[in-house]
Every structure is written in structure tokens, then in C-alpha cells.
Design a protein around this nucleic acid. Structure first.
Lengths: 221, 221
DNA sequence: ATCAAGTAGATTGTCTGACAATCCATGATG
DNA sequence: CATCATGGATTGTCAGACAATCTACTTGAT
């Protein structure tokens, strides 16, 4: 059957599209993502859509309860804290492992360069930098743990990052410090700088989620 | 097999049975686990079997390449090192988090008690102790990271643990030290003892995997 | 006899359509 | 007004089928 799309509408295609929609806030938090709707939108059957949705759930980008539709999760302060605290644990180990090799992933350097060239909206390059760190380090299992957390990190940043919490120069400087420590072969320093960097990002996000700050949300639900 | 006549043969049932078969070495490492065979053995269709297999692959208990049958992975020295090093990172954070609460999961105490009562084959209770630590700690995401690693840990111990590497008394003493540090509310000590404990287990397993004198492995049982 | 090419088998990847089970909202009824 | 039955909606699960890909073997030529 020739549906609208090209040759094969594999689950991964649906996964990517759905993921982009969630991270770009096209799918508002709390909004239901039903299997039927996804199947209809992509012209596939429900089981096919189900597979893609389950993949998103496994990555933390969707929440689902036994017999209800999947929903885009709303990351509250507790979630942000939990995600970033665990990321600090994992990513500091990532930086330490990289420092032991003494080599920096080329993708991280590229992301760092692009970040400085786009100071207005640098969030994608910030994410790319950290993903490159995780992916470029020797341990495959540590890379997997890191990638697992980055999904929710990206979701949390997307939900809050529109407010320009930090400026590109500060972020870039901290990134450069991490890279320098890695090149210098100093695992302890690389781990400490990474931890501080992530803690700072966590606190910046939490400030925006604290009700003391004005003009954050519209009305109480 | 002994599974028949059940109207609700959910994928989780197949998952559990397959998992037990792998961990009990019923499925020898390297052996292929085809979707057809699983479907036939459990009396379900291939997609149902596929879901269970993919779940095992996600947990690291099976390896699969794009167009080949899934196989039980053989954990070599590099794999053991990688699994246990990452476990040390995650589980030391688990112990530290528990120490901050000052409370010990009851399941961990129960596992510790059972371990002392079964000094002959204490591997299951050793695993249960560490799983209880991960599951009983506050952060849901850290618990998930820990559980993800424990699958391969259990696989690695199962592949080597038949040789009685450590005696129950030593393991129990180390466990008790961790519990005491948690109760005392000393995160740094709990983390350090946990790391040492895991590093010791790693080294014990690696000794048995080092081909010091026996080059060709002929597995007569 | 050795090597290359073609072919047959096996296995996975994917899809379709359907039925059963469960949850939520609505409306009827005491 | 509260309680319960009913309807719709959604997920959970399943069986069967076809296409794509890899492997191993047979066949043929050098």
C-alpha cells in the first residue's frame, strides 16, 4: 500500500519524529499521545506506533500508566533535581574516563565551536557537547547510562531553557575548562569541573521553577 | 516445555522464563536464541517472542546484531571490568544516598540474614542484597541505572561464580560494614566501602578469567 | 583441485487486522 | 443527591503473512 511517506516507515522514523515533537514543545507537557493518533498521523498500524511510543517511554521522554495513554511528562523541581544529580554522578565519571585517555572527542570540540557562534540560542549545542562527551568515552556501558539520562536532561532544558538562564560565554568557559582538564590528563579535576558545571545548570533551572520567581506560569492548576 | 494451557501468556512471562534460563546457564553462552524457537517453545507468535527477546537485549542479557539471531553473550575480561567499574560508580552513589537517609532497606537486611544461613551457595542472596540496595534508595532514576547494570552483573557472576571465589563470611562482613555506615549516616564511608567491595568482586572474577596456564577453554561440566 | 558465482534455506524486520480487557465519563435510577 | 449500570475509548495481546537480508551449499568454470 502506497502511503504518503517514502519507502519504509520504520518505527525509528516515527520515533525520531515523535522525539523531535516532544523536545520542541510541539507536544505540550501533559498532553496525551495515543497509539491511535500516532498510527493515524504516520499512516501505520497501532502496533507499529506502539513500538515507537514504548521506545520513548524507555528513554524517559514519555510517561505511561498501565492502561492509559502515554503523556508528555512535566518535570517538576524534584524531577529536575533527580535528573541532574544523577547526571552529575555519571557525567563526572565520563569526564574522568576521558581524562584517563587524554583525548577529547572531536564532536565535543565541534559543538563547543558552534556554541560560541550561536550565542543567542545555544541550547542545542550545549546538549551536543555533553552528548559527545558521553558517546566519545571508552566504556560502552557508561555511554549508555549517560545517554539514558540525557533524554530527560534535554526535555528539562527544553521546558525551561527558553528563559535564557545562562549566557553562552559562561557555559563555553566551563566547557573549555573541562576539555582542558581532560587534555591535561587530570581525572579528578575533570570530574570536579563537570560536577560543578552540572550543579550550576541544575540550580539555574530550579530557580526558574521556584514559585518565588515572578511571571513563570499562568495560573495555578 | 512446562508452560502450556495458559490463556494469558504475556510477554513478561516469557521474559522471566527466558531470563531464568539464561542466568542459570541453561542457555549456554554463544547459543542462539531465535524468535521462532522461543515462539514455538511458549506457544505464541513470533512478534510476542520478539518483544520478550528485545527486552532481554535491552537488559544486556542477550546480544543481537541487525539481521542475526540473538545470542547469550560471553562476558570476557574487558566486559567484566567494564560492568563492575560502572557498577562501582553507580552503587557507591546508591550507598551514599541511603546513608543520607540513614535508613537501610529491609530487604537488604533479610538478604544479609539469608546469606549467612546459606554459606554454600550464597550467590543469589549476594545479588539480592545489592538489588535491595538499589531498589530501596530514594532516587528512582538511580535505581533504574543500578538495575540496568545488575542484569549483566548477575550474568557475569553466574558465568564464573561456580568456582567459589569468595567465602560467605568475607562477603557478609563487607555487607555489614556497608549497612553500618548507612545507619551511621556516613555517606563518604558507605560509598568507599561499597566501592571496595565491588572492586574486590571484580578482581576475584578477573583472576578466574585470566588465561594464565589453561589456554584453550574446553567446558566439560 | 580451487575458486567464484548463483541459488536455496533460514532468520529477522515489518506490517495488517482483529479481539479481549480495562478505565473513564455519562446518564439513569433509587 | 448518591449509587450503579452502560457506553465509548484506549491499551494489551495475538495470529498470520510478506519482504529483506545473511548464510551455507551447490554448481560451474578455470
Amino acid at each position: 500500500m502506497s502511503l504518503s511517506g517514502s519507502t519504509t516507515a520504520r518505527p525509528s522514523v516515527i520515533y525520531d519524529a515523535l522525539r523531535a515533537a516532544i523536545l520542541s514543545q510541539s507536544q505540550r507537557p501533559g498532553q496525551a499521545v495515543t497509539e491511535s493518533a500516532v498510527a493515524l498521523a504516520f499512516g501505520v498500524s497501532r502496533p507499529t506506533a506502539k513500538i515507537a511510543i514504548e521506545q520513548l517511554v524507555a528513554d524517559g521522554l514519555l510517561h505511561r500508566e498501565p492502561n492509559a495513554a502515554a503523556r508528555v511528562p512535566t518535570l517538576g523541581p524534584d524531577d529536575i533535581r533527580d535528573v541532574f544529580d544523577n547526571r552529575a554522578i555519571v557525567e563526572s565519571a565520563v569526564s574522568a574516563a576521558l581524562a584517563r585517555t587524554g583525548a577529547v572527542p572531536p564532536a565535543a570540540v565541534a559543538a563547543q565551536r558552534e556554541l560560541l557562534r550561536h550565542p543567542g540560542d545555544f541550547a542545542p549545542f550545549d546538549i551536543a557537547f555533553h552528548r559527545a562527551l558521553g558517546a566519545g568515552q571508552p566504556s560502552p556501558r557508561l555511554a549508555r547510562l549517560h545517554a539514558l539520562l540525557m533524554g530527560e536532561v534535554e526535555l528539562g532544558i527544553g521546558q525551561v531553557h527558553a528563559h535564557h538562564l545562562l549566557d553562552a560565554a559562561t557555559v563555553a568557559a566551563q566547557h573549555q575548562g573541562i576539555l582542558d582538564a581532560i587534555i591535561a590528563g587530570d581525572p579528578a579535576l575533570a570530574a570536579r569541573l563537570t560536577r560543578d558545571h552540572i550543579d550550576g545548570a541544575r540550580d539555574a533551572l530550579l530557580i526558574h521553577l521556584t514559585p518565588s520567581h515572578d511571571s513563570t506560569a499562568h495560573g495555578d492548576d
